[in-house]
Design a protein around this nucleic acid. Structure first.
Lengths: 332, 332
DNA sequence: AGGGGAAGCGAAAGCGGTTTCGCAAATCAC
DNA sequence: GTGATTTGCGAAACCGCTTTCGCTTCCCCT
């Protein structure tokens, strides 16, 4: 590697034009004759020239870097959004600078914000941890575009892309109905959890619209596998002829499944099970086997959209929801 | 926000020193009297000065950005390493620029490499997808430090940090033995998979050292839940009195568990189960419930180490393994 | 007292582009 | 054919910081 890096003035010299002409030719800016433009391009290629991104960023005052603020980068959902957004941005030659609020609990986010501004970032992505917790609004604290992902924004005017819990609920029920189930129950998480609420609400709505009702009152509890076990045990005692269970999450679903099978019921023969999250795909990279039928809330789509809208400067205010989709496997 | 951004020369002027003195004072470089240094610092603070990171990077020729090369950024293991490394780097004000080979299957990695070099990145992290596939060596293709994560390097001289499959196998058995199990079996993935091999090898070794042997020959198959079911079914038929199963992965473990329970055996009462991956923690962000007892291979530790060693310039050649640890839950 | 070295600071040259502005030549209008 | 535009290009300023180099002073040593 003969590494006496080629600069733009080398190109200009080789092409017999001025530095400024070379710059404009390659950037397509200003008025340059097509002939010169092409000639410069060819020379640049021949020399293997590449813009020094650092110099360019500096001169333009734009860093080609996006700041990312997370509450907890170790949250698995956050990771998915983060990784897909980063991939998308990387493909467009944008770097990301991640600030995890977790690490700076004391440090006040203000510090991170100042850092990001000092870096002259071109935009900010704020990744929440769910549709249950509000994320404080950062929009006004930056002079560059800010977009929220996977959260319910404090200020409804903030540009936000997130999961559609209501649609998730509807979709789950719609799928169960379409497979002929009629005695459907719903076991889900904390009653105060907004995501759990919305899912239950959407599910209840669709059920009602279809002219049915819950086989048992919706059971609220925790987002945990154990709760799934407990709730399912109670449910089976109370409503033995239930023929489908919409589980608020895949974790709950796992617990439910264990109990249902232990009770000697066939899955999905006697009782169909559907969860939410698409856990297994998160684990298996879309290739492995699937087991639990589930609803994918669209985290990857959120990551992609957030990145692209930011780059395209498409920041109309308000919340945009991504469509969930059903992932059919062995349990429904 | 009165945003007429403060530059270093503003500070210099306000402090009554030259631009260069101000620079040196704040950077701690060169010889400057402690008095002036302090005075400049105070003035800078008073003015709310922050270095323009772009200008600084440009002047120094170092971008404060790390390039990250992945095979498949959507792989769940990759995501964990990526997210933890990014967090660690972000905390030290380093951005990352991600190139996912997946997106450029055709495009030849060469292009990405050129891009990264044009960005004047300060280092490169190459994230593999497992300890089963070799990653081609990129070390010589960059003039900056390169470090591999979660992979088996093509060139053993490449600086690499990865999981220790051998230790994983030993640890699993050690745990089972310590809980009094003696009739232990091992159900795992493809016989040609290096990770599966090493785990089986480590496990076999420890077992032998302890004076025992496998209750049944090791069964190789797939990394899938279904294979867990099938293998467990066969195993129970063949060796009904097995009292512990070391499952090659949590996915396999899930399948095994279903069959074991369906056969009426108590878990862990009759049969203890231990997996590998720590799936549930990946899903639950360390807080949720755990169900399957498992071995955490240390992906997060890999991410952290890789980031820190790169920043510290600690790049002695060769492979360094992270220690796995047991995550005790309900099944062993 | 005189010379050598170190300490403290400033002038100025980059770093590698982008961008404004002005000028000459070419094109247009009438 | 003359004046008014437009077109194509180059000179030079500039982005904000780092770093080399050299010039004073001051200190110490003999």
């Amino acid at each position: 590697m003969a590494d006496s890096v080629i600069t733009l003035s080398d190109v200009a010299a080789a092409a017999g034009v001025s530095l400024s002409t070379a710059s404009k030719a390659l950037n397509g800016t200003d008025r340059i004759s097509e002939a010169t433009r092409e000639h410069v391009r060819v020379t640049a290629d021949r020399l293997g020239f590449r813009h020094n991104a650092l110099a360019r960023s500096f001169a333009r005052g734009r860093s080609q870097t996006i700041g990312v603020l997370t509450h907890r980068a170790s949250n698995p959902f956050t990771r998915v959004v983060l990784a897909t957004a980063a991939t998308e941005l990387g493909a467009k030659e944008r770097a990301i600078l991640l600030y995890d609020a977790r690490m700076e609990e004391q440090h006040d986010v203000t510090e991170s914000i100042l850092q990001l501004r000092a870096r002259r970032i071109d935009g900010v992505i704020v990744i929440g941890t769910s549709t249950s917790f509000r994320t404080p609004s950062f929009t006004s604290r930056f002079d560059v575009p800010v977009i929220n992902a996977f959260t319910v924004p404090e200020d409804p005017q903030d540009t936000t892309i997130t999961a559609d819990d209501y649609a998730i609920g509807r979709l789950a029920i719609s799928h169960l109905l379409s497979t002929g189930r009629r005695r459907i129950a719903h076991l889900t998480a904390e009653p105060h959890d907004m995501a759990a609420q919305r899912r239950a609400e959407g599910a209840g709505q669709l059920l009602a619209e279809a002219g049915f009702q819950w086989a048992a009152p919706v059971r609220f509890g925790r987002w945990r596998e154990e709760w799934g076990e407990q709730a399912a045990t109670e449910l089976l005692a109370e409503v033995p002829d239930v023929d489908a269970i919409f589980c608020g999450s895949d974790a709950i679903g796992r617990g439910v499944e264990r109990v249902v099978r232990a009770a000697g019921r066939q899955v999905p023969g006697d009782i169909a099970l559907i969860g939410v999250d698409n856990w297994e795909s998160l684990m298996h990279d879309q290739r492995g086997t699937r087991h639990l039928t589930t609803i994918d809330v669209g985290l990857e789509e959120i990551g992609r959209r957030v990145a692209n809208r930011l780059l395209e400067g498409d920041l109309e205010p308000g919340t945009q929801y991504v469509e969930p989709h059903v992932v059919i496997a062995d349990t429904a």
